[in-house]
Design a binder for these strands. Structure first.
Length: 202
DNA sequence: GCGACAG
DNA sequence: ATCTTGTCGC
């Protein structure tokens, strides 16, 4: 499990307890052992994990839903990962966690997951309420190699995950109508990789 | 070959 | 992602 400790400008130190730090300054996210450090390594890992991906393994009874997102410091490295678990019945907040940390990989389209997943996993680890499904800020199957952040986080967390991207990465679509809830298929080749619910032109 | 490219 | 200026539409 990843964890954060120490200040950004300090060397990593063994925390008294995973995910805890008594030191001042911004915590540094310590990725799991073997976390990719180069694009080639990340591509290989993405390929390996894709073998563990199970498509269509959606949630059964959804009692709780988790929403995840990451906010960055202007330096583009320090970040805060947040997870909010809602009761699916009335949208009541059942639990929430915010962890500060650092980006675990440079931003590379297609390898985006390697940047935020360690911090997101840590946030999920600190949850006391187990969500039945994850709603991620980034694409899932609508990815050049069919393994976007949502797929990646789904495999590593063992939880069903949906990817929700704000801007397109791949595929083409017909602009959805203006009615609330309108949507259209996001098509990549002959396969439908998702749905467009926004109004951006493509 | 060139451009585009989640957050 | 985050910042910033300018413009457009309701």
């Amino acid at each position: 499990m990843p964890f954060t400790t120490g200040a950004a400008d300090e060397p990593a130190v063994a925390p008294g307890r995973p995910g805890t730090s008594t030191r001042p300054g911004w915590p540094r996210t310590v990725p799991p052992a073997g976390w990719p450090r180069t694009e080639d390594e990340a591509l290989a890992e993405q390929d390996r994990l894709r073998g563990r991906f199970v498509r269509g393994a959606g949630p059964g009874r959804v009692a709780t839903v988790a929403g995840l997102d990451v906010a960055y410091h202007e330096d583009g490295e320090r970040l805060a990962a947040a997870v909010v678990v809602l009761d699916a019945a009335d949208l009541t907040v059942r639990d929430s966690v915010v962890v500060r940390g650092t980006a675990a990989f440079p931003y590379v389209p297609g390898l985006f997951a390697f940047r935020e997943i360690p911090a997101l996993l840590e946030a999920l680890d600190r949850l006391t309420v187990r969500p039945d499904v994850l709603v991620c800020d980034g694409h899932g199957l609508a990815h050049p190699r069919r393994f976007g952040l949502a797929c990646h986080l789904g495999v590593l967390s063992g939880l069903p995950a949906y990817g929700v991207g704000k801007t397109p990465l791949i595929g083409t679509w017909e602009p959805p109508g203006p009615a609330r809830g309108a949507r259209s298929d996001l098509v990549d080749g002959v396969r439908s990789s998702g749905r467009c619910c926004g109004r951006r032109t493509g």
